[in-house]
Amino acid sequence: MSAGITLITSQKVFDETIASLDWHDAFIKESIFVAGIWFRAGGVASGDGDVLRILFVLPCQFPNSALEVIAYGVKQYQLASFLDDHSPIAEIRRRDAHLNLGTFVSVHASCFAYRWLDNRFAGFETCYSALPIHNELGELLYPFNIDWRTAMDLVSDLS
């Protein structure tokens, strides 16, 4: 259905990919957050961490217009329906990443990644109500099961 995930391991990667796209008239079509914790008898158990997926539609971007941004280790986020033609800015540090798109859209997480989805997901078809992110053991499923921690630690130009 879709391409593999590309981790944003540095400020340079972000500037050359996400920031360079045409964000005119872009909007958030869908998002899903899944906590990596769950309740069980005796307390709270934890799995592979929190994941937030945001499906952006970029009508002016060709040939693909359905961009998925994945945030790992989500600390806090706020979203709105419209981006008001704001282009994204970000601050990418080792295991600490901030993404902003205007006044009401911001995500604070440990790591960001992205991938292009099939253009049919820019249509009315719901993307995130079909496949789960975690398996029955609480482990992230492919293609989300990237070792982003090691990848970010290997990059030397992060503070």
């Binding site: 909007f27 958030i28 539609v57």
Partner: peptide
């Protein structure tokens, strides 16, 4: 006490149609 968000799901009632952006229902 000790409550938390396990999941959240947002769906925008806006999508890209062949002749522009379409709206239907609500977010």
């Amino acid at each position: 006490d000790c409550a938390y968000v396990k999941e959240s799901h947002f769906v925008q009632a806006q999508w890209q149609a062949p002749n522009g952006v379409a709206f239907k229902e609500q977010s």
